[in-house]
């Protein structure tokens, strides 16, 4: 099981904005207890999905070399609840990004209806010298491909977004390594 709280990107403009969708399904275990007779997508997991949308938007600016972590939920206002069968659209806008962090505003919509408004701060972990990666580059790249980032992504100059070269190299290296499974 992977901690995926978005299903795919539908728009992505490098350093500017990103849109991702999350389809809520009764097949998700957590909805069976939250709540037993009224399955509701937990607000916290909506925020997590928005953070994944905004966090990848922030990470891409520095070619995913910074270790981006959600540092603060500055604002989270929910106007309603999401239920199985709903398709949530998370729209994240980059307000500001710099070497030590990023500030993102986002919304969640169910169809055309505003569902939530969220403001998030991401920090770039500074202890880079310790060489602890949050993700292996090849794993991260496969995740980004799964999410369709490179199908819809646009680089700053409007051309299709390409994975950073070091990630492609890591992916090639991985295919050369015999599988242990």
């Amino acid at each position: 099981m992977r901690w995926f709280w978005i299903d795919k990107f539908i728009e992505f403009e490098s350093g500017k904005s990103a849109k991702a969708v999350k389809c809520v399904s009764l097949a998700e275990d957590h909805l069976h207890d939250h709540f037993r007779y009224l399955p509701v997508m937990p607000h916290s997991l909506v925020i997590e999905g928005i953070a994944q949308t905004g966090g990848l938007l922030a990470g891409e600016v520095y070619d995913f070399r910074e270790r981006v972590v959600l540092a603060k939920v500055a604002k989270a206002i929910f106007h309603g609840t999401a239920h199985p069968g709903d398709r949530l659209t998370y729209s994240a806008t980059m307000n500001d990004i710099r070497e030590n962090g990023a500030y993102v505003s986002a919304t969640s919509h169910i169809g055309d209806t505003l569902h939530a408004e969220v403001e998030l701060f991401f920090a770039h972990l500074s202890d880079k010298d310790q060489q602890r990666e949050l993700f292996f580059p090849a794993d991260l790249l496969s995740m980004l491909r799964l999410l369709g980032l490179y199908e819809v992504g646009k680089a700053k100059d409007g051309t299709p977004l390409q994975p950073p070269e070091y990630m492609i190299q890591a992916e090639i290296e991985l295919t050369k390594t015999p599988s242990i499974s």
Binding site: N95, D96, R98, E99, N100, F121, A123
Partner: peptide
């Protein structure tokens, strides 16, 4: 500590200034 980053972003926007790290 993370709030200072938040505050820096907000002050920059409110006053149209740049606050170096």
């Amino acid at each position: 500590s993370i709030d200072f980053l938040d505050i820096v972003f907000r002050l920059e926007k409110a006053f149209d200034i740049t606050i170096p790290r």
